[in-house]
Design a protein around this nucleic acid. Structure first.
Lengths: 245, 245
DNA sequence: GCCAATGTGAACGCTGTGTGAACGGGGTCC
DNA sequence: GGACCCCGTTCACACAGCGTTCACATTGGC
């Protein structure tokens, strides 16, 4: 596996902690050169199973998939990236002109493409734009909902201008809720996406954390976290707004 | 103003009623040729005010903005398209390689770009992909029938813009009905497909849930669920033409 | 008018969730 | 190194919501 992930590298002022996924391994020289020149961290993988095993804990920043040489496996990786609870956003295909017609059947597998041979500046601009789009909504260092405000960098939380004293797990759970409002999550989903691993036993653990969160939010805001009986929990108002739109 | 909007033109089988906005007017010949060849309806405009005045009632399907000749006005149009209540999604810039560095400051003004001179198939693929994305829209996985709307992600239901308070089983049953309208199901079929297992006894259970659903839908919409005597229940139109499935 | 099928109201009992408390591992401070 | 404390997890129990069932009323077809 070819790794070039330098934690904490800066891309025009924005901290970019997550690496890009690159296929294949080793990548074409010009691609390596472009990424290095643009200071974009990446990890190259040779197949799907390697991709899964080296995925960073906080996910991929995106992916550049070279589909010229080995379209079969390239599209296979795309499919794998799109699956699961949290599909990878920002999949960029590198193809040659002859493959343009193949895209039509695979619109769902990518977010952008670039024709090879490519202009390094063009590829860089496309990667940058994908990351702009990905980072636009969710990731700013602060988030909130109504009277609730979270500072993701300092791990502080406030509600109605009063600071909340949360433990690590409580904060992570609340953060997840804030960044995924209105949607219902089962306990198992919460365990795998907040706790971050497949959990053995103890789905009731979620209940306890929810209870403590509600208690700390105060009686007035306890209803921010609603129980959907025999399904799971939902964060946010009863009236529905579609999340985006 | 150059118009080429043929209502109801088909783009690979998908009905595309809305036209693309093109700048400038007249557009470069190769662009016209590409759009015509791909059967993509469009309206060319020379400036922002014309664009505003000729906007179709149901909005633009997207926009292709040529920024090579007149970047000033080109980006001005982009800005105008992004403003307002319903910003245009699917703005594609046509630029030359020298302008790549300018994109960095304008990430918010476009969704994709294409280097000029361009490969007609590439431009077509990009337009198609933008429209695929737009059509998929912000997909809050929703379903509905008439005034009834179900949000599958939030487990919420509304009818006539009023929220419905449904229990788990009621919601699941209604969801099944909504996703299988106009078809008659026996109680046994409903039990096995909604309850999800071969059920012992209690076919009357379905009756009770149907009754409660009707009650919660309100007198006005209670007839959404019709009983077909000695067969089962059917959801949807009183009309006897049952369209699909 | 008879019988079968369905609507209706109410009661039962189970399952899911809230709640209090205890356990135990990891870290910190004497 | 031992005695704490914090916090994530687990357990036992209580309660309430809800799915199910039953008895009875009503409807509709023959």
């Amino acid at each position: 596996m070819g790794a070039h992930a330098l934690p904490g590298r800066l891309v025009d002022g924005r901290n970019m902690t997550q690496p890009l996924l690159i296929f294949p391994d080793p990548p074409p020289p010009l691609l390596v050169q472009t990424l290095d020149f643009a200071n974009i961290p990446y990890i190259a993988v040779a197949n799907t199973s390697v991709a899964m095993s080296v995925e960073p804990a906080d996910g991929w920043a995106g992916a550049v998939i070279v589909a010229e040489e080995d379209p079969e496996n390239a599209f296979g990786i795309c499919r794998a990236l799109r699956k699961g609870d949290s599909p990878v956003e920002g999949v960029l295909l590198l193809i040659n002109a002859g493959q343009l017609s193949e895209l039509e059947q695979r619109e769902n597998l990518f977010d952008d493409f670039c024709l090879s041979p490519f202009h390094p500046k063009e590829l860089e601009a496309r990667i940058r734009h994908l990351q702009y789009r990905a980072g636009r909504g969710s990731d700013p260092e602060t988030g909130g909902y109504g009277e609730l405000v979270l500072n993701f960098e300092t791990y502080q939380a406030m509600i109605s201008d009063k600071p909340l004293d949360l433990t690590y797990m409580e904060y992570e759970l609340l953060k997840f809720f804030v960044t995924h409002p209105a949607k219902v999550f089962t306990r198992e989903q919460l365990l795998s996406r907040v706790w971050g691993y497949e959990y053995y036993g103890g789905a009731r653990t979620v209940d306890v954390h929810v209870r403590r969160l509600r208690a700390k939010l105060g009686e007035e805001h306890a209803n921010l976290i609603q129980t959907v009986r025999s399904v799971g929990y939902r964060f946010g108002q009863t009236r529905w707004n579609s999340p985006t739109e």
